[in-house]
Nucleic acid binder design. Structure first.
Lengths: 253, 253
DNA sequence: CCATCTTTGTGCACGCGTTCACAAAGACAT
DNA sequence: ATGTCTTTGTGAACGCGTGCACAAAGATGG
């Protein structure tokens, strides 16, 4: 077999828990908003509320970074913005390439949230020759043939894949071979990458399916007491002492 | 205070762990691919590889659903597709509205992954009067004034927010008031919702920031020993005892 | 019918993440 | 200087998720 690793091995990076790292951008966003309103200091309680987390969690998260913060007062907003930015590596410039300039790729290219945080769209790449040269978000699309050169010329280490699912693995392989070590994947596929390469995936369809699961559960719970009319397929997934929802058991095949 | 709950309280739904629910769509996708290739059965090992997870994890996940699967043989692909679909609530039709038809909203409207899984884009809504009536992905955009009527006429319970950050909370409130109980949020804001409403967020900027963190760590580790130029990136993620990179510590303000 | 082989389903242990609760630390007033 | 009050930083307990490892279950062949 020997398929490459697929998920990051969650190797506790530099002592900072992965879960904490995932929340740092959240804190940073809240802090930036405070900074723009010229708020000098903020307590863990206030900041936690703004970021939508528990205040104890926030304090513990910050404790991994060091002892910023003054007891009895709170945290200095500007200082914390700087510390978190530095920890996340946002004090430097990150050139990013987007591969696959369809609807989604174009939307990403236009997305303002990138530039605002040290990320710079260095190039747009697409396999369609008809796209070549056409400007999207003010950046001319380049052909996939030049992928390796583009990566190297711009010193790109972060790639965004917004291609159809079928092309994703091949694009991924080329990106990695050219030196990219972090990939944000929007294609609905599991990517195989060698050790040392990080992959994060965003799958719109999966998010919706998770919502649908909870939605169905809510509908089922509701219909548990009164006879829900519209309940086409909905069955009471409610409770726990379930008769296991043994369904008609129509073997589909 | 009394700010509404922000995160789902992770109320172990019907005994199925949240982490398992999040993986079910992954399995379903892999199974669907097998189904299209007319593969009759699959072992936990094979399926796990296709979904990019550990085989023990997969078996445990399935054990929450019931005892499908035959020892010595594996799982019947078609049967499992049906069971997971049913568990996720994909055997019914889910009308979805997308609010905010900018670049991203339009991309989402065009995204094929929705329709393929029982999700149907029932309506597109935007606050810009100039957009009203204009068709996107074959669906005419409707004005935000009619939001409540649209939700109710179509029996929508899932809403997608793709508006600018500033408008997101207001849109969210209106959606919830109109009866929406599940929200997929693309706006970079923390949404406050009452209990019973599920929110999942997708934040492109946050994903990139997490990647940047690991990227920075990788670069730092590499430079720790030799002044590695660009060393084709591939390095083991090994080692943990990090030198802690205590940096200059320049107080910014 | 029995032996063997494959693969599932799960008990168990471990580690990570979350939360509580509180002592230590500092600001601030007197 | 001293006491009070606020808020941080963290020890400790708990719960969830993961992965190992193996017994039970069934298929398959003789």
């Amino acid at each position: 077999m020997a398929t490459g690793r697929t998920h990051r091995p969650a190797t506790r990076s530099r002592g900072i828990p992965e879960a904490t790292v995932a929340r740092l951008p959240l804190y940073l966003r809240a802090l930036t908003a405070l900074s723009e309103r010229s708020v000098p200091t903020v307590s863990s309680e206030e900041l936690a509320a703004a970021a939508g987390v528990n205040s104890a969690k926030l304090r513990k998260d910050f404790s991994y970074l060091g002892s910023y913060g003054t007891r009895g007062v709170g945290y200095d907003v500007e200082y914390l913005v700087y510390q978190i930015s530095r920890e996340l590596g946002l004090t430097q410039d990150w050139p990013v390439v987007i591969v696959g300039i369809g609807n989604l790729g174009a939307a990403l290219a236009n997305y303002g949230g990138f530039a605002s945080r040290g990320f710079r769209v260095a190039a747009l790449i697409d396999a369609d020759p008809a796209m070549a040269g056409k400007p999207v978000a003010g950046i001319p699309v380049q052909h996939a043939d030049d992928l390796e050169r583009i990566i190297q010329d711009n010193g790109v280490s972060i790639g965004v894949i917004a291609t159809p699912a079928g092309a994703a693995q091949a694009v991924c392989d080329r990106l990695v071979a050219a030196g990219v070590t972090s990939i944000l994947n929007f294609a609905p596929t599991v990517l195989s990458v060698p050790d040392g390469v990080d992959v994060r995936k965003v799958d719109l369809s999966i998010e919706l399916q998770i919502l649908a699961f909870h939605e169905q559960r809510k509908a089922g719970e509701e219909a548990a007491s009164d006879g829900g009319v519209q309940a086409s397929a909905a069955r009471g997934t409610s409770a726990d002492q379930g008769p296991d929802g043994d369904v008609p058991a129509v073997m589909p095949a």
